[in-house]
Nucleic acid binder design. Structure first.
Length: 308
DNA sequence: AAGCATCGCAACCGCGCATAA
DNA sequence: ATTATGCGCGGTTGCGATGCT
């Protein structure tokens, strides 16, 4: 049994791909597709292992690949998603069309390295119930995301101390439906900031006053900004399956990224406001989408884009 | 100009999972 | 039920490019 290393066979080339090899792979894949990667090298006339061919195609050669610098919007999305799902690069990449997990991973790692070098201003996390975190990190910093925290190095203090408080949450000041979980209520910065202003307009110590909810967000949620509770709870989406993202209209929403036993929850989103919950109890529509009005948000203190 | 350090990123490695045999 | 195989993922490596002294 063991491990089946595909690349230790005879005369398998390794290292950088030559233009000729690229051409062979492109020609083969575009005419035949890639049903079985292990067959690709032989059929395409390449002295490579199938795994290498797959990697080369997915990360570099496929036509829908998007190259070049990440846009500020992409960057923000990566940060937000990473804050929720951690180092699940493929997961993050699935929300950035044309970007690969490898590219995002590389970007993230080099970004971290850059930030590490920056001197960081020591920041006292307020021990009170109101705390700040930046980007999506709040969820991880308080250990609510079920994942290996060793992949979230102490780097993060430095990484974000010069950045912005995107989320504010309040722990334990409301009684949630699920008594076992820490209750996290978060509001998010607006979607419209560019990268520069995004970094310049915030400091970690700023306390953002909670502005009144914009008209666009008030539907069904006026009273104390708390959403209505939904009685008919059918399922629960674990926290690690949630993320926020931004659509092409600049709307931010929650996404239930996946569901254990069903695909019905995949990519359901499109909320007028922005919300992250320690858990989501929601009522499904027929098509599996969870509209804002029917999502039970438990107790949300405040949750809407600040400058819509 | 030369040597060294660092960065960025393509590619590889090893593991886990799914599935076929 | 067990083993073999292939795929996909996250972590890591290696190397060319670039920057610094």
């Amino acid at each position: 049994m063991g491990h089946h290393s595909c690349c230790n066979q005879q005369k398998v080339k390794r290292g950088l791909w030559s233009p000729e090899e690229d051409e062979k792979l492109i020609r083969y894949i575009t005419t035949h597709g890639y049903g079985c990667w292990s067959e690709v090298p032989e059929k395409a006339g390449l002295q490579r292992c199938g795994k290498s061919c797959r990697l080369r195609w997915i990360n570099y050669l496929r036509p829908d690949i998007r190259r070049g610098r990440f846009t500020p919007e992409e960057e923000k999305l990566i940060i937000s998603l990473h804050g929720v799902v951690g180092n699940r690069w493929a997961h993050i990449a699935s929300h950035l069309p044309g970007r690969t997990d490898n590219e995002i991973k590389n970007y993230w790692n080099s970004w971290i390295k850059k930030k590490i070098r920056k001197p960081t201003t020591p920041r006292a996390m307020a021990p009170s119930s109101v705390e700040f975190v930046q980007s999506g990190y709040g969820l991880n910093q308080i250990g609510l995301v079920n994942q290996d925290l060793s992949t979230k190095p102490p780097v993060e203090d430095g990484l974000f101390s010069s950045s912005c408080p995107i989320f504010m949450f309040d722990i334990g000041t409301v009684d949630g439906l699920s008594s076992g979980n820490a209750r996290v209520d978060i509001f998010h910065e607006s979607a419209g900031l560019n990268s520069d202003s995004w970094h310049q307009n915030y400091s970690t110590h700023e306390v953002q006053a909670i502005p009144p909810p914009p008209p666009s967000f008030t539907s069904g949620m006026e009273s104390n900004y708390l959403p209505p509770l939904i009685e008919n709870v059918e399922t629960m989406v674990p926290m690690e399956d949630q993320a926020c993202s931004m659509n092409e209209n600049g709307e931010i929403g929650l996404e239930c990224l996946q569901r254990q036993e069903s695909s019905e929850w995949v990519d359901s989103h499109q909320y007028p406001g922005f919300l992250i919950w320690d858990h989501v109890e929601a009522q499904m529509c027929g098509d599996g989408v969870v509209p804002a009005a029917s999502a039970n948000l438990g107790h949300i203190l405040s949750s809407y884009p600040q400058s819509l």
